[in-house]
Design a protein around this nucleic acid. Structure first.
Lengths: 346, 346
DNA sequence: AATTCAGTTTGTCCTAGACAAACAAGCATT
DNA sequence: AATGCTTGTTTGTCTAGGACAAACTGAATT
């Protein structure tokens, strides 16, 4: 019952949603690289064998790590997995602090919070429980860790690494997607619950939280929410996928000091950049923009007037910075928080 | 600052995600009905004026209510809104008990729970607070209602009607999308929180909850979760968008008695039907399937072996039925709960 | 070590035609 | 007056190959 891969063949629409690759892209790859090479049904329409869908999913995953299609499309499964292991060796480029595919080292090393030893053991336990579907045990253990470590440390030392481990395990076929779903759901429950017990912080930076359309990145958003709320700031979350125009409206209506955006590694960085620039343009210059998540791996250039939050643990510092310079126009000071950008402008 | 519609023109991809209409569909409509009629940029690519996007959104909304494109695409905005009011007169066909576009009457009339008078007033208050962005007040009021009415009544008498009112208000331009987002987010917080305080029910039907891929229907799923949990059943939620195969795997792994699916009115009913049949085929016959949400408006035929839950309030009865006939193979008894289907088979 | 320049890669958009599944409506049957 | 069958129509999605701008690579230059 383990690697019980399904023989279920799928049409192009199903493959597109399953892999997150646009239909056009699937057709173009077939034309250019000779993979995938679907069979055809009676009407000449593409029918993808499950094995190819599987391969496409792994390819998608590798692309999220920064590899380019031309280099990997067409490689056999075995080789793909090898590349995957190789790319995991370069965590600096690889994964950031939000989705599965995340990176524990940078998170716990960079933050001001010391890593916690006993958590390391708990990580493995959670994975075991997940694999054995001991939902209730898992929930209890996580809750216990949360209470012990506190919300912020819990996120940095447990949730982020776990995200990475879960993503990794799925990649290697050690767990099923539904188990990943299950894990995500548990964490969401836990975080929301913890968040519910916080009184709506009334301290200085009032932060509006959301993601851009196309980013179904609930977990990252929620982690950011929890982290910022734990900092004592006032949070208003709009949930995922708010169009730029509506973000502007909402920011105005709620008179927020900061707009926080969360990004997954999923979509190409260029769209994110464009949207950020657009938002910067339309938003009141006094309102800061904090952009967190995985854009900062691949993007070398920052966006002017946008404070990068490459790392959840960095949030504390950025909140502190904001409080120090409260009231300064965002587009003026924001580069200070980004050494790379600052130096590139001198 | 009210009907401050944006002059922002969009490319076809943006329009597609904004309206939920496939790119192909947008092009075909243009060819067939002469609407939309985007301008072209320097490279001959479509550029949709905001006014047309707005119209497309309303059209999409009308289609969710069962109207067909041929009859409404090409109509001017004014006429569209008129049709909208007209279609609202037929709640039997119109909206179900889950997403914005939902229907209060059927929900409170059909259920065993008596409607609550004071709630009626609260509904209007919530809408007012939402429009004035008094988030904290709104949260408090909702919470108060929840405590007073209890989880189930709260959902049936408040959340469902509110969903309808919010959808309606958006439709008529009385509120912005971000306000809809904000509302949704509040409700989700509230429900998750309430759910967290339930001990994981250990009573008989163990229910696996999720949606099919393409259904980003968190709120409906969450309402179902809360409702079923309040019945004392044991719930395992996988979150949204689980592929059929993974549902089967998860059902097996967790040894659930029932798989519960939640549907929005968003996607065409035929895909939902196909997926349900597929699931029925692959799933252990002893496991029941409960399908809730908006498929049962447009679909005349039921799916054999699937128990329709056209109405959240009906959940109580269905759980009771399950407990009465516990252990019976799903595909045998399920039609009993569906009078229409049962009669069509005699 | 940073910048510019050419060359290559890659995703998305374009057109226009085809077709099956879903639907409506009329007709025949019980 | 329902139910079942046969039409014709509507509608979404698929296919094909061509085009092109934006993003990347890597070497040559300051």
């Amino acid at each position: 019952m383990e690697s019980d891969t399904l023989d279920h063949p799928s049409d192009i629409a199903a493959v597109s949603t399953a892999t997150g690759l646009a239909k056009d892209t699937l057709r173009v790859w077939e034309r250019r690289y000779g993979f995938p090479q679907p069979e055809r049904d009676a009407h000449g329409e593409r029918v993808y064998p499950a094995e190819q869908v599987e391969r496409l999913r792994v390819i998608r995953r590798l692309m999220d790590r920064g590899l380019r299609p031309g280099a990997i499309v067409g490689l056999p499964m075995q080789e793909l997995l090898a590349r995957h292991d190789a790319s995991a060796d370069v965590p600096s480029r690889a994964a950031a602090a939000s989705e599965p595919g995340a990176d524990q080292e940078s998170a716990s090393a960079d933050g001001g919070l010391p890593p916690d030893q006993p958590e390391r053991a708990a990580l493995a336990d959670v994975m075991t429980m997940l694999k054995q579907h001991r939902v209730e045990d898992m929930r209890q253990l996580l809750n216990q860790c949360l209470l012990r470590a506190g919300l912020q440390r819990f996120i940095v030392d447990m949730v982020v690494p776990l995200n990475g481990m879960v993503g990794e395990a799925w990649m290697q076929g050690r767990i099923q997607i539904f188990e990943e779903h299950l894990y995500t759901e548990q964490i969401k429950h836990l975080l929301r619950n913890a968040l519910g017990n916080f009184p709506t912080g009334s301290q200085t930076p009032k932060v509006l939280l959301t993601t851009f359309p196309g980013e179904q990145h609930q977990l990252g958003l929620l982690m950011a929410h929890a982290f910022i709320a734990a900092e004592g700031a006032q949070c208003v979350s709009l949930g995922t996928e708010t169009p730029v125009w509506d973000i502007v409206q909402a920011a105005r209506a709620h008179r927020v000091d900061v707009v926080g955006l969360s990004f997954s590694a999923a979509r190409p960085a260029r769209v994110a950049r464009a949207a950020l620039e657009d938002l910067r343009l339309r938003l009141d210059p006094a309102v800061h923009i904090w952009a967190g998540g995985s854009i900062w791996q691949s993007a070398r250039k920052g966006v002017p007037g946008v404070t990068p939050v490459p790392d959840l643990a960095g949030v504390s510092k950025i909140v502190a910075d904001w409080r120090a310079n409260a009231g300064t126009a965002a587009s003026t000071i924001s580069t200070a928080a980004n050494p790379a950008l600052a130096s590139s402008l001198t």
